[in-house]
Design a protein around this nucleic acid. Structure first.
Length: 844
RNA sequence: GCCGGUGUGGCGGAAUGGUAGACGCAGGGGAUUCAAAAUCCCCCGCCAGCAAUGGCGUGCCGGUUCGAGUCCGGCCACCGGUACCA
């Protein structure tokens, strides 16, 4: 072999690793353990370049940790339940199960040639009955401990297809298939009591030192702790008082109306015999259930005719409105509106001609609010008008605290800490998910299935020719015996949210074949995940749910102590984006095209496509890249090297094919250099020190780069060192040493090439098992350094000084520099700043 | 709407508050070759200038500092999340 031949090299070394079981995770007490995990993929059918990037990052860490003496656990599996499988079945026949397992087989066949250091003996899919059966056992244990309960909740209902729609299936308030106006419908559903852990999940964020600050901030805002007050408003008609929750009781003087949610008991009661109100409530029900739809919808309301007394100014009466912007889920489902200090309330007040009264002014600006609400930061000082608690000029925050005290002291309300976080609804009215192991018995009610009957398996004989849940209409599947009394009963036909599947898979990987959800010894050894890697799109829900699950599993004895926070370190890699290519069909509907179908902005038949700027790769937009082509052309090492080299790991990367060629050239160059060294001798030993100094500097830089997720920076240093090595005239002995180290430093990114170079240079054994090189500190010390010299903060020259030169020596060298003299032009510097080892700045 | 993030040459990007543009791509020039491919070497932010050099320059406006891509305030654009996409 005289040229770099990745296809030969890669197959050879993958076989060698498999024979040696190099990546099998083994428990032993002589080494520290390291658990590295990348978020497992949804088996959409094709690996895309984003997967390659994600798994390569994890692989770099895993291989590096192996080389630094750890027992590494690096598993892989499949997040295999979910809607796309059912959609595929509806669109083109077939069965979700067949579709899913075929996709897994294909994706695995694409993943294997990447040479990832995965322990494939631990592989599982969440749709394996062995996995979801254990998940059903967890459900039953959680239920017993009071972590799961039932209540009514709203869903998007498609009245034509007679089915529940996911939020993404509702487009502009209409069902994606039927086009029918979507309605909200209440169903009894199962919930995890995650809200019991609101405060704990919030406080524990502080301990997550190796999580990105932005993720902790997003979770913190999501949990959304607020201090407020519940205030009773007495009705003038003697009905039950309306309880409002407010975080801004300091604005009470400006209260001008009460707004209740359309599904508030008051609204419901009135709608029963008031057709106008009923029509409005009905209209509100037509809105889809997402937060964004609620917030962006036009704020509308209707006066109920009910009046309440202002609790502080009893001679004032406030009208009670039903508002489409009030959420029954948050607080008490009723708020008071203070138009002067809330823009939404102000818009509402102007629209319906309600009074606007300031509660406070800014100091020195006694201006009544017109069309822009006065909403200063809570830390700003404001002047209150006629404040009932006797306060005048304080910050809003102080006023809030004082008002809560005043209300409590006068029996007008009670201080409350509330959380934005809602309980997690897990019921889904779909087939392709984990069946909820519950039996409904006429006599015994809601009964969990007996554990020895698990898994409650999905039936295979189902059809998807009509919408709706096939479990519901299956002729026999629902029929069962009540686990409690033994009489005929019916199974629950709802399945679990797929977030449940991904909330504990990391724990299952520690003992994937255990006959219980986890093996406590294995979990104790391998948990926690030392490094978790995944997309920022999971910053809130998946990670929060997993944190909740770790606590719940601990409470039910499925995880040992110390695993409340299951992910010690988190890294959120950027997404791979791509342009979107769109044309329009004869009815004006968009048609998307894969990048492989588009050349120079045109389809094969010459049709020009519209190019939409890069966005997250998604199947529906077809802006995905299939890595098969890259692997066939260049091999895995090139693909791995390129996805890491071109962009910092935490940032999005736009896929371009042009860089792959460059990566391939570089790897060929490294191979050639090693080949040359292995077949030559001689050289000039006087050059050795320069080469070895560069080598030790590179060991340090590349190691730091890997440890800090600066893979692109590490690669830049490796490019530089390769050039140094290529040009070096040093002795073959030194060059051999340098090439071996280069191969090692590259090995986490280009493992196959590195093994080949290692063996070319005469090393026995696998580079994967070789100890990581350590930089010799004494080779890193420099005698002379170059310092930039600025005049008034702009660089004008540079000087060479001894590394340990004193400040005044540096100053005089700088001042006597020819270029600096010219700039000073005889003037005396006002000030000279010398930052040792960094810079000199002369101020004139 | 709300929460979080990002913005630097033709392009991807580098830079503990200290030489802006490392490294790579594209482009230009050269060596080698009968010729090409491959490989190797050099140049490459913008404007002015033959050059030396000077001025400008990190989305926009302002501030802090001897010094700001980096810190602070206010905007703009784009990306992610927004609880049933995964």
């Amino acid at each position: 072999m005289t040229t770099y031949a990745p296809s030969e090299i890669e197959a050879k070394w993958q076989a060698a690793w498999a024979d040696a079981e190099t990546f099998k995770a083994v428990r032993s007490e002589d080494k520290p353990k390291y658990y590295v995990l990348e978020m497992f993929p949804y088996p959409s059918g094709n690996l895309h370049i984003g997967h390659v990037r994600n798994y390569t990052m994890g692989d770099v860490i895993a291989r590096y940790k192996l080389a630094t003496g750890h027992n590494v656990l690096h598993p892989m599996g499949w997040d295999a339940f979910g809607m796309p499988a059912e959609n595929a079945a509806m669109a083109s026949g077939g069965h979700p199960k067949d579709w899913t397992y075929a996709n897994i087989a294909h994706m695995k066949s694409q993943m294997l040639p990447l040479g990832l250091s995965l322990d494939w003996t631990r592989e599982f899919a969440t749709c394996d009955p062995e996995y979801y059966g254990q998940q059903q056992a967890l459900f039953i244990d959680f239920l017993e401990k009071g972590l799961i309960y039932r209540k009514k909740a709203t869903v998007n209902w498609d009245p034509v297809d007679m089915t529940v729609l996911a939020n993404e299936q509702v487009i502009d308030g209409k069902g994606w298939r039927s086009g029918a106006e979507v309605e909200r419908r209440e169903l009894v559903q199962w919930f995890f009591k995650i809200s019991d852990y609101s405060e704990e999940l919030l406080n524990a964020l502080d301990g997550l030192d190796d999580w990105p600050a932005k993720v902790k901030l997003m979770q913190s805002n999501w949990i959304g702790m607020s201090r407020g007050i519940e205030i009773n408003f007495e009705r003038t008609d003697g009905g039950d008082p309306i309880v409002c929750y407010s975080t801004r009781p300091d604005t009470m003087r400006g209260a001008s109306f009460i707004a209740v949610a359309p599904d508030h008991p008051v609204s419901k009661a009135l709608a029963d015999d008031n057709p106008e109100l009923a029509a409005f409530v009905d209209e509100c029900r037509k809105m889809d259930t997402t937060e964004v739809a609620m917030e962006k919808a036009e704020k509308k309301g209707i006066d109920t005719g009910i009046r309440v007394k202002h609790p502080v100014y009893p001679d004032q009466e406030l009208p009670v409105w039903i508002g489409n912007f009030v959420l029954m889920d948050y607080g008490t489902g009723a708020v008071f509106g203070c138009p002067a200090h809330d823009q939404r309330d102000l818009d509402f007040a102007r629209k319906y001609d309600l009074p606007v009264r300031n509660a406070f002014y800014m100091p020195g600006e006694e201006v009544e609010v017109a069309n822009e609400a006065l909403v200063p930061a809570k830390s700003e000082q404001v002047v209150f008008i006629d404040h009932f608690a006797g306060i005048e000029k304080v910050t809003s925050q102080e006023a809030i605290d004082a008002t809560i005290d005043y209300f409590e002291a006068n029996g007008l309300g009670k201080g409350q800490t509330k959380f934005r976080l809602r309980d997690w609804g897990l019921s889904r009215q779909r087939y392709w998910g984990c069946p909820i192991p519950i039996v409904h018995c006429d006599d015994c009610g809601v009964v969990p299935e007996a554990k020895e009957k698990l898994p409650v398996q999905l039936p295979d004989d189902v059809s998807f020719d009509i919408p709706g849940n096939p479990l519901d209409r299956h002729p026999t599947w629902r029929d069962c015996a009540c686990p409690s009394c033994g009489k005929p009963a019916k199974r629950e036909t709802d399945t679990m949210d797929t977030f449940v599947d991904s909330s504990w898979y990391f724990a299952r990987f520690t003992a994937p074949r255990a006959s219980t959800p986890t093996d406590i010894d294995d979990a104790a050894y391998w948990m926690n995940v030392d490094q978790y890697i995944g997309g920022i799109e999971h910053a809130i829900l998946h990670l929060l749910y997993s944190r909740f699950f770790a606590r719940a599993m601990q409470m039910t004895g499925h995880l040992p102590q110390g695993t409340e926070e299951p992910f010690n370190a988190l890294f959120t890699q950027g997404m791979v984006t791509h342009e979107i290519y769109k044309t329009t069909d004869k009815d004006g509907r968009p048609v998307y095209h894969f990048p492989s179908e588009v050349t120079d902005g045109k389809l094969a038949d010459g049709t020009k496509v519209d190019i939409i700027p890069s966005a997250k790769m998604s199947k529906s937009k077809k802006n995905v890249v299939d890595p098969d082509e890259i692997l066939a052309k260049y091999g895995a090492d090139t693909a791995r090297w390129f996805v890491l080299s071109d962009s910092p790991p935490e940032r999005d990367v736009e896929w371009t094919a042009s860089g792959a060629e460059a990566a391939y050239k570089h790897l060929g160059r490294v191979w050639r250099i090693a080949h040359e060294i292995s077949t030559s001798d001689g050289g000039d030993a006087a050059q050795d020190e320069d080469l070895l100094r560069a080598m030790h500097k590179t060991i340090m830089d590349a190691t730091n780069g890997i440890e800090s997720f600066g893979f692109n920076a590490a690669i830049a240093k490796l490019y530089g060192f390769t050039a140094t090595l290529a040009k070096s005239k040093a002795s073959v002995g030194a060059k051999r040493e340098a090439a071996k180290v280069l191969a090692q430093l590259m090995s986490p990114m280009t493992p196959h090439l590195s093994e080949e170079v290692w063996s070319l240079l005469g090393e026995e054994g696998l580079i994967a098992n070789a100890p990581w090189p350590v930089a010799d500190e004494s080779m890193l010390v420099e005698d002379t350094i170059t310092l930039p010299v600025q005049v008034n903060g702009k660089r004008k020259s540079e000087i060479a000084v001894a590394a340990d030169a004193a400040k005044d020596v540096v100053e005089s060298i700088a001042l006597s520099d020819e270029a600096i003299q010219k700039h000073l032009d005889g003037a005396t510097p006002k000030k000279v700043i010398v930052v040792p080892g960094r810079i000199v700045n002369i101020v004139i």
